[in-house]
Write a protein that binds this DNA or RNA. Structure first.
Length: 304
DNA sequence: AATCGACCCTGCTCGC
DNA sequence: TGCGAGCAGGGTCGAT
């Protein structure tokens, strides 16, 4: 559910409300929340209790809290992925428990950090930081070390990301969602960026010019910047920031979720089609669908 | 090696 | 009003 802007909203909230606080009492009740932790929920509790949260970092949709000021390779951090429905909430620790509460950490200021996740695709793990492999200088948690820079990262280079995308051979939307090529983009912002660029998501990457791919990435950055300014996109109460407030960007979406409604640019009704077990939304007027893929020609086949 | 579909969950909305 | 079908923003895994 949450894509880069939503995760960034959460990160900022954590920076304000949790960084500097000690985790005095930790409880992890959700088995699925801890499924990536080799030692299970107990191990998370043991590793976090008593630690001081010193930083709130993010790359793409991955979020992590650094601990005790240790940001060297091998230092532990709490890696959080929100999945489709995860929330990191900060509430008064006397507030009543809510449905789908899977983990909580009492802070030394009377508040409590809560992980609430209806669909349980999200999770917490305490993992070591890996050696930095890119130029950004930020150490990434080991399980997230393969995640590419996102468009908000100062180290992000649209041209080289576009080259990596064009080096692959499949539909361009599939590649926009591949977090090892460019991170942070999910189903909503992929559709929005493709619409802004006038490119159909089923176009093959190789049949799309480098310039057009760069344009799609630039639009992805722009649409996510717009969303961030509005506090993120939210369709309902599922997505909230650390204080429980929803974003308002859904009012500004141009194609996502607008099947049958007129395209804001040309008036053609927006179409929704199945794609990768999800929905893709596009304007047939502005984003002409590619011709059905031809069988490889004799000439193509002869090139080995 | 790269690509692609299946799958993991719960809850809400819509049409019958 | 009740009920099943369809849908939802995520990543990972195994088969090909």
């Amino acid at each position: 559910m949450p894509e880069l802007p939503e995760v960034e909203v959460v990160r900022r909230g954590l920076e304000t409300h949790v960084v500097g606080r000690r985790l005095v009492d930790v409880e992890v009740t959700g088995a699925r929340t801890a499924r990536r932790q080799p030692g299970g929920p107990e191990e998370i509790v043991a590793l976090l209790t008593g630690r001081v949260v010193s930083g709130a970092r993010r790359r793409g949709k991955y979020l992590w809290l650094t601990l005790d000021g240790d940001e060297t390779p091998g230092s532990d951090c709490l890696l959080v992925h929100l999945g489709m429905s995860g929330q990191m909430l900060v509430t008064d620790s006397r507030a009543p428990a809510v449905r789908h509460l899977h983990a909580r950490a009492a802070l030394d200021d009377g508040n409590e950090l809560r992980f609430v996740d209806q669909r349980t695709f999200g999770g917490w793990t305490v993992v070591p930081l890996a050696d930095a492999l890119d130029g950004s200088g930020t150490l990434l948690p080991a399980p997230a070390a393969h995640i590419a820079a996102d468009p908000f990262d100062p180290a992000f280079d649209a041209r080289s990301a576009a080259r990596r995308i064009r080096g692959r051979d499949t539909e361009i939307k599939r590649l926009l969602l591949d977090q090892t090529l460019v991170s942070g983009i999910g189903n909503i912002y992929a559709d929005e960026a493709l619409w802004r660029a006038g490119v159909h998501g089923r176009r093959r990457s190789g049949a799309t010019t480098l310039t057009a791919v760069i344009e799609v990435l630039d639009h992805a950055r722009d649409v996510m910047t717009d969303a961030l300014e509005e506090g993120g996109t939210s369709f309902d109460a599922l997505y909230v920031d650390v204080n429980g407030a929803s974003g308002y960007f859904d009012r500004a979406l141009d194609v996502y979720g607008r099947a049958g409604l007129p395209c804001a640019r040309c008036g053609t009704p927006v179409v929704r089609e199945d794609f990768m077990n999800r929905g893709s939304h596009f304007c047939p007027g502005c984003q002409p669908p590619p011709r059905r893929r031809k069988a490889p020609s004799r000439r193509t086949r002869s090139v080995r």
